[in-house]
C-alpha cells in the first residue's frame, strides 16, 4: 500500500510539474508573440534616380509598455582626420582618430526619454542611447576618458551632419485596440546610408528593464547600372580607369568638333 501511495504521489507531482511547465511555456509563448516588428520598406534599391527613401516600422506590443526602435548597420571601424589648432591660431588636420565598434548608421527612437525608462545597465547591455554607444565604442589614440568624450561628441556631430545618426523621443505613435497596443513610426531614410544590411530592433520596456525584443531587417542594395559601375570601379579598376579617360577624351574632342562646326557656320 505505502508503495502504491508513493507511486500515486509521484504521478501527481509529475503531472503538476508538466502542467506548470506547459502553463509557463504557454505564457512565455504569449509574451514572445506579444511584440512584433515589421519594416514596411525592407528592401531599398538604389538606382540612378535614388534620393533616399522612407521606412516605417510598425507592430504590436503589450498595452502600457514603452517602446524603443533602434536601426543600426553592422559595426565597423572608421578612421577620420581630426582638426586642431597649430601655432595657436591655424586650424588644420593634426592627426587621425580611429573609432572602433562604430555603426555606420544609428537611429534610436523611443516613446519617452530613454534615460527615464531604462537603467544604465540595460542601456549598456543593448547599446541604447548615445551615452551607452560612447561606452561601447573605442576611440584611439586618446589620453583619457575626458578626451574620448570630446571626440565622441565630435563624432556624433559629424554623423548627424550626414543624417546618419539621430535620436528622438515621442515620435512613436501608439494606439490601443482590442487590448493590444499598435505602434508605428515613419523615418526618413537618408541617401547617405550606404548599401548594407540594416537591423531594426524594437524593445518593449517595463519597470526599467527590456521585457521583450523583436527584430526586422532592411536591405539596401545598388541595382542595375549603378551596381555595374560600382562593381567595375572596384573589381575591374584598370578597365574602369581606361574607360573613364577615353570617355573624357571623347567628350572633350566631341564638344571641340561641335564648336568648330558651329564656328564654321558664321
Amino acid at each position: 500500500m505505502p508503495e502504491h501511495r508513493t507511486q500515486n504521489t509521484g504521478y501527481r507531482i509529475r503531472f503538476l510539474l508538466f502542467a506548470l511547465c506547459s502553463l509557463l511555456f504557454a505564457l512565455n509563448g504569449i509574451a514572445l508573440a506579444e511584440l512584433t516588428a515589421k519594416a514596411n520598406h525592407d528592401h531599398i534599391t538604389i538606382d540612378f534616380f535614388y534620393h533616399g527613401s522612407s521606412v516605417s516600422v510598425k507592430g504590436i506590443s503589450e498595452p502600457g509598455t514603452d517602446l524603443i526602435v533602434k536601426i543600426t548597420s553592422p559595426e565597423r571601424h572608421e578612421a577620420l582626420r581630426k582638426k586642431g589648432k597649430v601655432a595657436g591660431f591655424l586650424w588644420m588636420n593634426v592627426g587621425k582618430l580611429t573609432f572602433e565598434r562604430a555603426p555606420f548608421l544609428y537611429f534610436l527612437h523611443s516613446t519617452k526619454n530613454i534615460e527615464d525608462i531604462l537603467g544604465r545597465e540595460e542601456m549598456d547591455k543593448y547599446v541604447l542611447g548615445y551615452p551607452a554607444l560612447s561606452r561601447h565604442m573605442e576611440v584611439t589614440p586618446v589620453a583619457n576618458d575626458k578626451e574620448k568624450n570630446i571626440w565622441f561628441n565630435e563624432f556624433l556631430k559629424y554623423k548627424e551632419s550626414s543624417n546618419l545618426y539621430s535620436t528622438s523621443s515621442g515620435k512613436i505613435s501608439t494606439v490601443t485596440k482590442n487590448g493590444k497596443q499598435e505602434y508605428s513610426i515613419v523615418l526618413d531614410w537618408p541617401y547617405q546610408a550606404s548599401p548594407d544590411n540594416y537591423v531594426v530592433t524594437v524593445h518593449a520596456v517595463k519597470n526599467g528593464k527590456v521585457a521583450e525584443t523583436a527584430e526586422a531587417k532592411v536591405l539596401v542594395e545598388q541595382v542595375g547600372l549603378v551596381k555595374g559601375l560600382a562593381d567595375m570601379a572596384k573589381n575591374k579598376a584598370i578597365f574602369y580607369g581606361i574607360i573613364s579617360i577615353i570617355a573624357a577624351l571623347g567628350a572633350g574632342f566631341g564638344v571641340g568638333l561641335v564648336f568648330r562646326k558651329g564656328g564654321g557656320a558664321h
Binding site: F48, L229, A233, K234, A237, I238, Y240, G241, I242, I243, S244, I245, A247, A248, L249, A251, G252
Partner: peptide, 23 residues
C-alpha cells in the same frame, strides 16, 4: 590622364557618373 588612371587603379575613387556631369 596619369592621375585619373592611378586614382582609379589604386584608390577606386573615380566616380564616372560625377565626372560625366562635370564634363
Amino acid at each position: 590622364i596619369e592621375v585619373t588612371f592611378l586614382q582609379a587603379y589604386t584608390n577606386h575613387t573615380v566616380d564616372f557618373m560625377l565626372a560625366v556631369l562635370l564634363l
